[in-house]
Design a protein around this nucleic acid. Structure first.
Lengths: 192, 192
DNA sequence: TGTACATCAGTGAACGCGCGTTCACTGATGTAC
DNA sequence: TGTACATCAGTGAACGCGCGTTCACTGATGTAC
């Protein structure tokens, strides 16, 4: 049952994408190689024709998820980004949402290779945010990067905390609302 | 080898405390019942004399860790809290640091019981922060809770992101610094 | 262009291992008299 | 207060199970002639 080179490459990419989704949904330890391969439409044995180990795939899936997160939010201005990111829809769609929020906590316990991947993902996210922040002329241009780090930390933290609450929890919604309100206000010119 | 009632109760408490530390260090899936009991100074068989299941212990350990976090930061004003929370020392001491930051991401994938425990922990943290925020008379008193949610989300998010970076990463330190600076500034009376 | 053969992506059984959990047992504690 | 017995926290071997990984095999693909 060999397959064309192009097909094999496409299959490999499908495994990585499937993994990036399943890991966000269930965590690195919550997805087995067999689960993963079945979800991608294969049997588990073929896994090692594509990857040296599960850890190797984890690193690739993290890179895939992080760049997908970046692409999902491309072209948004800061207010649009904050509104979408801090929506109930994003919070409830862990498997398709931000990889930093879904797996950032797990990354801390993973090998250096995965942490490096996350650091690159954070840098890329900051670069995109800084581009938008620079466009706001009422923001102190010497502090754009600092402000964008504040913004990223608060949005990621808000999603993490909101998801840690029970599904029907009013606190979960309040966290999103408070951070949305607070951050949108901080993006406006100061009106004393 | 029976043991006095008081001793048994103390042993049980030691298991819960040990668990709350190990879980923060390695995550819920990274600590086995046998590991845990050995770390607490017992053999694994006795575990089920104290707990119905590992999941039961996880909920108790979460409550223990969350209230320990609260106690650790009791009596600090907001500026002191921010400075300590966003220190490298706290970031690097996962096993003794904030449970929300260490396990908040994992809580999202845990049963409702654990999420309820986390929601209570978040509420308690907010209550403590609100008490301090109310003391600052330059803060709009109608928005104290909102501001404290912003503060908690940003501090937790900063630790999560900083820990996701490689150990020697300058980005990891930059995140802490930027959030410390930004938040301490936001706690001062506005000077336009 | 057609034929013969090597390659290798994908299959599915099997591997050792560590997990959560159970269980028969031990022996000091706590209790009944 | 002293003796006999039931209790039960803690022990350590054993359980089934699912994990990551390996392997012999299959058969279409890709290549050499």
């Amino acid at each position: 049952m060999k397959v064309t080179k192009a097909q094999a490459q496409a299959n490999r990419a499908r495994i990585v994408e499937t993994a990036s989704v399943l890991f966000r949904e269930r965590g690195y330890d919550g997805v087995g190689v067999a689960d993963l391969m079945a979800a991608a439409g294969f049997t588990h044995g073929g896994f090692y024709k594509h990857f040296r180990s599960k850890a190797d795939l984890m690193a690739e899936a993290a890179a895939c998820g992080l760049s997908q997160t970046l692409a999902n939010n491309a072209g948004l201005d800061l207010a649009e980004f904050v509104s979408l990111y801090l929506s109930r829809e994003h919070r409830d769609a862990r498997s398709l949402g931000c990889t930093m929020a879904a797996l950032g906590g797990d990354a801390a316990r993973q090998p250096e290779e995965i942490k490096t991947t996350f650091a690159n993902g954070i840098e890329n996210a900051l670069a995109a945010l800084e581009r938008e922040g620079t466009a706001l002329d009422h923001v102190d241009q010497h502090r754009v990067r600092e402000k964008m780090i504040n913004l990223l930390a608060q949005t990621v933290g808000a999603i993490v905390l909101s998801r840690a609450c029970p599904d029907d929890s009013s606190l979960a919604d309040e966290i999103l609302e408070a951070c949305r309100t607070g951050m949108l206000a901080s993006l406006l010119p100061t009106t004393p």
